[in-house]
């Protein structure tokens, strides 16, 4: 049984913004909000790290537990989906999520406001559903992982990507400064 996950080899992330941009392009995410972003810690000094952050499609999602309208659900293949028609934008999922993945886009352009999307929670869906929801789910194909410049971001079936992740973490990707 496929279980979709993301794993990030953060020592290889160069903060190139490719994941941010292709996610926007593919899913038509409007200006001012993002499903995928890179957070930098210790900027400018030894120990500087870049961490790609998006919904991690948790095994036991706190957001699903927190949602009062059952707008959030987890598919059999692991992807956590939002039914935007049920979302009331209360923000509970944002509180619950340890990654800060849920976004509540405001000041949307008129055409998106008219669709009732103002303030409604949006997050990564593994490219299954774009920003404006569609009738039929697409095939999961996370572009952020496919386009990652240094293959730092891994996405797909956990059985496949975990060995790759482990191999990458074991050798030489920890920068020298960390040993100091």
């Amino acid at each position: 049984m496929t279980t979709y996950k993301f794993l990030n080899v953060i020592e290889k992330c160069i903060d190139c913004g490719g994941c941010f941009a292709i996610c926007k392009d593919q899913n038509k995410v409007p200006e001012g909000t993002a499903r995928m972003r890179v957070v930098t810690i210790n900027e400018g000094k030894p120990g500087e790290k870049n961490i790609p952050i998006s919904c991690m499609h948790c095994t036991d999602p706190p957001c699903v537990a927190a949602c009062p309208t059952k707008a959030l659900s987890k598919r059999e293949d692991g992807i956590v989906m939002t039914d935007k028609s049920k979302c009331i934008g209360c923000g509970y999922c944002g509180w619950a999520c340890p990654f800060g993945a849920p976004q509540y886009p405001h000041d949307l352009p008129e055409n998106l406001k008219k669709l009732g999307l103002e303030g409604i929670m949006d997050k990564c869906t593994l490219c299954v559903q774009p920003f404006v929801p569609e009738e039929v789910d697409r095939e999961p194909k996370p572009r952020c992982a496919l386009f990652c410049a240094t293959k730092a971001r891994l996405g797909g079936d956990i059985a496949e990507i975990l060995p790759v992740y482990n191999e990458a973490k074991v050798r030489s990707t920890i920068s020298y400064q960390e040993h100091v």
Binding site: T2, V9, K12, E139, P140, K141, P142, A145, L146, C148, T150, K151, R153, L154, G155, G156, D157, E160, I161, P163, V164, Y165, E167, A168, R171
Partner: peptide
């Protein structure tokens, strides 16, 4: 295929395997 796709995301690091 789905399997192929997940391998592709790991290309840079799969070499050692």
């Amino acid at each position: 295929s789905r399997r192929t796709f997940t391998k592709l995301t790991a290309l840079g690091t799969a070499a050692a395997l």
